[in-house]
Design a binder for these strands. Structure first.
Lengths: 216, 216, 216, 216
DNA sequence: CATGAATGAGATTTCATTCAT
DNA sequence: GATGAATGAAATCTCATTCAT
């Protein structure tokens, strides 16, 4: 798999200023610590970033902009890492397990759900102001969703090539992939492995379910 | 199926005062209209309820309490209706389709996701204040989750009795049930039926997937 | 002269709430004390009015609105008193001298120029926000300028009837009246009476100049 | 008339640095464009002047100083030009009409009133900070008001020499001169010429009124 | 019980000024 | 000298909560 399936629109975050990144990281940390997104204060962000309050307004025009971009930045880093994972392993199955590894390592950091999942499931509870900002972003070619879909499609194709399943419809493949990963996230979130299984058995169960659904 | 599998802890909402219910409804309406939950103001609630602002504090001790109880009240009414659905049909399959009917009818009302789903998936983005209130509630016997689990277990048992599937582990049954319903919700939310299928085909696909996963 | 030549549009200020008036008075006092109009803080206004800061926003939607309305309110009270003066004396000359009395009594209260004069001369140095508010007011029938012009016209007509001057053009009469009163204000502001004259002589000079200009 | 009646204290502006002048011009332009004087920001000034923000503090110690000096600089250039006008024409009447020309040409540039007039009439609405700065200036020999009074006195004397009027009191002559020019400014500002007269008739009216008032 | 006027703590944002480069 | 990134004091405005009626 090429290390660059298609250009990642989030590359807008390449080469950003240090203070900008410190602010993003402050927001992400707070989300990880389960702060309510709408309760985050500018003073929280700048305080954690170790900079003056006024400095935030040298880089952004409003608090909303800081938060939206921080969420996108978080998505960006997750996707970068996931892309690396999907490129770093050879076999289809190895990739899937590596992905479950990543999810299991990242998700528990949050008491709730990680921002990537929140973004994918669209359940950030965000103010209209923030929504408008995000919508602007999504209504351009810079929308990362298309990028994600391409990434998944490319990966799921490999399962066919390796003759692990036969399902020919790419949308259905994507749907099953997403649903089963969601199932795995629920497993992790609920601190149990479906059906009192151990960790490895739970993973095998998820993987096998996916294969089962994609074969006649 | 008895119309009362086990006592519903949310029965606390039986016989509440009219003004109290008007306030709950105001909150629920706003959530349906996709307001940010943390942006809801006391004046919004009392305004929509057609009562004086001070009156809210005759019934509740804080804004957070109003909202938490309103969300629980919403869950309560959903569960009442779902319980009725599961009791109103005879066959396992009919019940499942009736459930999909209900989800399809209710979910689109919200631009995002209905409060029941949000509650089930735990992705309300709520302030710590509200969280503490909810936790207080969940740490008592009044927690509706156990009730929901019992409801699902009872229903899924019927599939075994009707010899639709053979899976013996109730936790696994519950997990598959939840995951597949989630998949259906994604279908509705994304305005497409997995794999370019029509509405009926999509439902059949979901139902059949569930059955497939619960058989060896 | 009837006590009501024509209806005063500023009658909008009849029967206002007490707290509203306290805020107006606070603004007027500060203008009298020569505060810069744009430096007035909401906390100054509410502090002087003896009310809470938030209360201001129960009566007005913005600081600008408070200030604009306070200036109009000030104009309103000035005009009410001037109308009373013009109705309270019989002869043309007595009225003019009573007017000079009023100006002399009121103007020194301000280190600069009173708000009525500032309004008449359009030299408030005001922010665009305030200007827009004032313009809205002026672009309605409620504009006090027409009212003022009618008041002056009515008064200057009396000079013709009393055969004090013969000038037939009402616009010219108004212009001369305004210019000479302005001259008197300069006298007061500069703490001298034109040409080293005493107070009475200065007044006579102004009055006689006006008469001179309105006769061939 | 000698080109130098008495030394102009504003000659302090001779030979100033280029960047200094660029900043003055930026302020004057903004006043002409009807900015509120207290809303002018340092970044506006340096931005328009095309220099770095920090540079302003190489030449001035505060924003207030920049603005005060800019207003004085504006007065300085106006006075230079007015002095030139009063020296460039021979007859008393020609000089008066040339002056009206100048006012008519300069005033409409501003939506409100030009800074010279504002300064003469003392109706800049300025913050205490600026006032203190101006007072410092006025309490020195550098005060331009005396210079202006001398200029007017010198000019008004010519009217006596040319036997246009007989008024002997110089303060009275100055007062009438100022009042009538003010009347002319009102004419221009209000876009009408007193009493529906045309432009030339209005000028004649003003001039004749002045002459009338200065004769017995 | 019901009300809504009053409150003030606390949030976002602005911008004159500093200072290391 | 010239710069502009960084700062934080201070301003406006919001809104949950109280309490006299």
């Amino acid at each position: 798999m090429s290390s660059n399936i298609n250009s990642n629109p989030l590359d807008m975050f390449e080469g950003i200023a240090e203070k900008e990144m410190l602010m993003y990281q402050a927001v992400i940390d707070m989300v990880q610590e389960d702060y309510d997104i709408n309760s985050i204060k500018v003073s929280d962000i700048t305080g954690r970033a170790g900079i003056g309050k006024g400095t935030a307004y040298e880089y952004f025009t409003s608090k909303e902009e800081i938060i939206v971009k921080a969420l996108l930045y978080d998505t960006y880093t997750h996707l970068k890492r996931i892309e690396a994972i999907l490129c770093g392993k050879d076999g289809y199955k190895d990739k899937f397990y590596a992905l479950m590894d990543y999810l299991e390592k990242k998700l528990p950091l949050t008491k709730g759900v990680g921002s990537l999942m929140k973004m994918l499931s669209g359940t950030y509870e965000i103010k209209d102001d923030i929504k408008i900002e995000l919508d602007k972003f999504h209504n351009t070619d810079a929308c990362p969703l298309t990028y994600v879909e391409n990434l998944i499609d490319y990966y799921m194709m490999q399962g066919v090539e390796e003759k692990i399943y036969t399902e020919a419809n790419p949308i259905l493949r994507r749907s099953v992939f997403a649903t089963q990963l969601t199932g795995y996230i629920y497993c992790i979130m609920n601190n149990y492995y479906a059906g009192n299984l151990g960790r490895e058995e739970a993973r095998d169960y998820i993987y096998n379910s996916m294969v089962k659904l994609l074969n006649p």
